[in-house]
């Protein structure tokens, strides 16, 4: 069972996906300078009614094994310690301990 922060992140990811197209449409109207200011303002107000977890910036890549939020190697989706454990166990292809 993943920890609560990972569960929250999964929830955010699903909500971002569900609301992405509507949000983009409102963003287009709100940022379009050729449209009348009143329309743009209404679109911005609509944008503000979306939930906190519908914004893509609330999504954070966490470690897929331990759920740690810091020290993530984005290529592998692992935190530095899990990366070390897996690399030493030979579970990550093409990665080996340096020695010279």
């Amino acid at each position: 069972m993943p920890n609560a922060r990972v569960l929250r992140d999964i929830k955010a990811r699903n909500l971002v996906k569900a609301n992405e197209i509507t949000r983009r449409a409102y963003l287009y109207v709100a940022r379009n300078q050729s449209l009348p200011p009143q329309v743009r303002y209404q679109a911005q107000l609509q944008l503000n009614t979306f939930g906190k977890y519908t914004r893509p910036t609330t999504v954070k890549n966490r470690c897929t094994v331990s759920g740690r939020g810091r020290g993530i190697m984005s290529e592998f989706g692992l935190c530095r310690f899990q990366f070390r454990l897996k690399a030493l166990a030979g579970e990550i292809p093409g990665v080996q301990k340096a020695s010279w």
Partner: peptide, 24 residues
């Protein structure tokens, strides 16, 4: 002038976001 076209042009990020964690 800002036309907002970049919000329509950009690829959707949701589909790849959802696949980040392995299905359990």
């Amino acid at each position: 002038a800002r036309t907002g076209a970049k919000y329509l042009r950009a690829r959707l990020r949701g589909p790849s976001m959802v696949e980040y964690y392995p299905k359990e």
